[in-house]
Design a protein around this nucleic acid. Structure first.
Lengths: 132, 132
DNA sequence: CGGCATCCAACTCGATACTG
DNA sequence: CAGTATCGAGTTGGATGCCG
């Protein structure tokens, strides 16, 4: 009998993972997981939206954070910004093709989250109860 | 002619969205998007891992953050913690069924991120160049 | 070995005020 | 209308030291 084995099931070796890939994944999850991106992207899922429409549609967002988040999404090529230099100025935002493909992934993530929400909440309640 | 129409394509109305659902999605994205969760979950994808194995396997993580992140994942029912009270103590972590199902979703997110990484990097470079 | 407590630097985000 | 600038509270995460 192999004495190097322990009484509990031996952990398997972790798969070698590409740290660079993980970093890429994390960066995207961090972007989409920040405070407002989900709401903004979701609102644009149905087509172009004016700045003011997004502002009204997303309860509680400050002008600053809406601008900032849209800039970041634009920088990553997920959102297209179109300025109409009228008076007053008009700016529309819409998902790019890339942004739309991300939106689809986010939807599947969303399905998972909704499907397992109660399971997570139960786990939390149990954990919190156990740790007085 | 309808004077309410503008010269650029009229934005469509945003779909009504369930804010509560969005909050759920955001919470999960925020958990998985924090600095270390992706790496940790990914390492556990291949089976149970000891605390020290995770620590060694994840370059740059502090003990504090490993403990903290594992606690949060455990609290959400994504990770199972098993203590063997030997000397020295031994603690193993593994994905629960729920955690594994999230891991699958994260993989599809990962596929997207890897497939579009260069596209995002190009967009960033262009954006940064444009804004001097 | 695994983990908690403390301290501190860096960043995030909201409030507010001002501009073309 | 859409955006920028500034300030301050709150949060995140790293370093360090101690404990069973």
């Amino acid at each position: 009998m192999d004495v190097s084995a322990t009484e509990i099931s031996a952990p398997t070796q972790a798969q070698p993972h590409n740290t660079n890939d993980c970093e890429t994944v994390r960066a995207i999850l961090a972007r989409t997981g920040d405070k407002w991106s989900v709401l903004i992207v979701k609102m644009m899922g149905s087509g172009p939206q004016r700045f003011s429409a997004l502002r009204r549609g997303i309860t509680g967002i400050s002008q600053r954070m809406l601008t900032l988040t849209l800039r970041n999404l634009e920088r990553d090529g997920l959102v297209l910004r179109t300025v109409t230099p009228s008076t007053p100025p008009r700016v529309d935002y819409e998902l790019t093709r890339l942004g739309h493909s991300l939106w689809i992934i986010m939807e599947s993530f969303g399905q998972w989250a909704i499907a397992h929400r109660s399971e997570i909440e139960t786990a939390r309640a149990r954990f919190d109860a156990r740790n007085h």
